[in-house]
Write a protein that binds this DNA or RNA. Structure first.
Lengths: 342, 342
DNA sequence: CTGAAAGCGCTTACAG
DNA sequence: CTGAAAGCGCTTACAG
């Protein structure tokens, strides 16, 4: 038992005195096999506790029904929802999912991608780490004829499928909502501007100001305020300035918005009456703060499903429309109490 | 380019007019190879964009440095933290992680386990689905000489490594804390009693009542109150009863505790003065409700690391102490405002 | 419908 | 240090 090897197709063949190829055919449910033989093989395989060796099978067949996923952080709501969505679709197709996290580090992202290339996965699905670097590793994926799908944080120059949120439009609508609620001095907490999604969100903010005939004021835009702590710091500065804002759009995340809310509460500033707050991501907690926080839902689970479906569609369709390489999902503004003062 | 095959060890060998075995040795950094040859091979491999085929290598070596993980839900805080912890350790060891989710369904759990056996993973790490069934699939894992580590929700009868929380002790301490705060009628929201962790938590509750000389009252124990909605329902009933409780221990989850808090708030019942509330899991939101919710932290990330280390320790040590097959992690009571009335 | 043979891409004793 | 050969466990043309 201890050093016993797993039973192979040959063990079954030997036991039944037939050829290994027949066993293989019986097991793979081929039509070119006698029904009686097939039944016997199946029965014997079960008795001998046979389980196929997927490595051998995949090697021989030259394909590996496995998709590699590289995300910055597995345990972040957005990404774990993406993974859950992916898994739901790939499971039904009999695909496995290999998960890696870059921890927002470029070097680690490169490592993960290389490991996945070695694994001969059929597809790599990736959201780029915050610490950016050259993207030869992604070009490598393509060179090795592995499909590549980028999502959320993508490298524009690379000609791959991209599934993104329409960050600009979502931000635009969020800011217009603030304007409609009568806020006049709307501040922006920005994320690192070398990351595309944060640039887009800023663009949406600027467009909404222009559209509303509001001035664009440098002093109302705070860089790199993308954690709760940094959001709180930026807020403290904003609120202490001679002309403080009457609304803050924490475009980076709900965590940042939470920082804003805590500082406002500490200072006894009424939300939403004296200060409107809007976050980004629709983290579960935004519903239960007091007041609840207006935010933007990214449909992360369904985004995961969309990504996976894109791969299978691309695999299965003959003339997949190359024009539709970028799928943009429109996020939804969720209006809650933190901005409802009318 | 389009139908080009990936370069193999043979392509390199041919180009350099040496044997494939030498290429293999050079690539695997063997000592039995001339330094000059090795350098040449490495250079050529890079030029030819060579990447090893892990399937072939693993098949030949008869081992697959991959760990399969089966969890009920990937996108639940506890589990995604476990996975993050696992990944941190396995990444450093050069192992891959294949992730599956059972969606709390037994049939799907069986599917996942079988797929992982086929993959010849080295180890399967699992937390059992809520919908329980026979566990032959787990016995199969053992029969196929794959290591099995159970965590959190485990099957007791199976002789495998188990990494669990000391649920009983944690519940015991939580209830003693409620007693110390002067609460006299402490209700329990239970989870399904066929799941071990929920039985253990109930046991801790009962022990604490006995220890405190409190009566055990059936009318204060509510079955299957393990979601926010069910928690809210149970709470409404409890608070409408002739002798309502003055504290509720939502032993199932913080979500359940949140349901309690919402009902209490709706009814205008002061928390913690008139009603104490304690949850379980230390979900991020417990910190930011008003009042913040007392709960129990399960150290999920470090639990993930512990699990992974257990595997590697078992692999590497010669005489691993078989006695230590169950690792019990003591969760920590986090006292917050929802129970602090003294 | 069945069998014998080749081969997926690698690694590793075995000689030299 | 290097090469020729065998084999990991499977699948698939090729004959029959």
């Amino acid at each position: 038992m201890k050093s016993q090897k797993r039973t192979t197709i040959y063990d079954i063949a030997q036991k039944l005195s037939i050829a290994a190829s027949s066993v293989s055919r019986a097991l793979s449910n081929s039509t070119k096999v006698n029904a009686a033989t097939k039944a016997l093989v199946l029965k014997t395989a079960a008795e001998m506790n046979y389980q196929q060796n997927a490595m051998a099978s995949n090697l021989r067949k030259g394909n590996n029904p496995t998709i590699g996923v590289v995300v910055p952080m597995i345990n972040q709501n957005f990404f774990s929802n993406i993974i859950a969505g992916l898994e739901e679709v790939t499971y039904k197709k009999g695909y496995n999912l290999i998960i890696c996290q870059s921890n927002e580090l470029h070097a680690r992202e490169v490592d993960c991608v290389n490991a996945l290339i070695n694994q001969h996965v059929s597809c790599i699905i990736i959201s780029i780490a915050a610490e950016m670097g050259p993207h030869q590793h992604l070009q490598q994926v393509l060179d090795h004829r592995i499909r590549l799908i980028q999502f959320d944080r993508v490298v524009d120059e690379l000609d791959t499928f991209k599934v993104i949120n329409d960050n600009e439009q979502a931000s635009y609508e969020a800011v217009l909502h603030l304007v409609a609620q009568g806020y006049k001095r709307i501040a922006l907490l920005e994320g690192p501007q070398d990351i595309d999604i944060f640039r887009q969100r800023k663009e949406g903010y600027l467009n909404a100001l222009r559209k509303s005939g509001f001035p664009i004021l440098e002093e109302l835009m705070c860089e790199n305020a993308w954690t709760k702590e940094l959001g709180a710091e930026a807020t403290a500065q904003l609120l202490n300035s001679p002309e403080p804002p009457d609304a803050i759009f924490a475009s980076t995340s709900d965590f940042s918005a939470l920082g804003v809310l805590e500082v406002a509460t500490d200072k006894g500033i009424a939300v939403p009456e004296a200060l409107g707050i809007c976050g980004y991501s629709n983290e579960p907690f935004t519903e239960i703060t007091s007041p609840s926080i207006t935010t933007i839902d990214q449909y992360s689970i369904s985004m995961g499903k969309t990504i996976a479906n894109l791969y299978f569609q691309d695999m299965e369709e003959f003339d997949f429309n190359v024009e539709t390489k970028v799928v943009s999902i429109k996020p939804k503004l969720i209006v809650r109490k933190s901005t409802s003062r009318i």
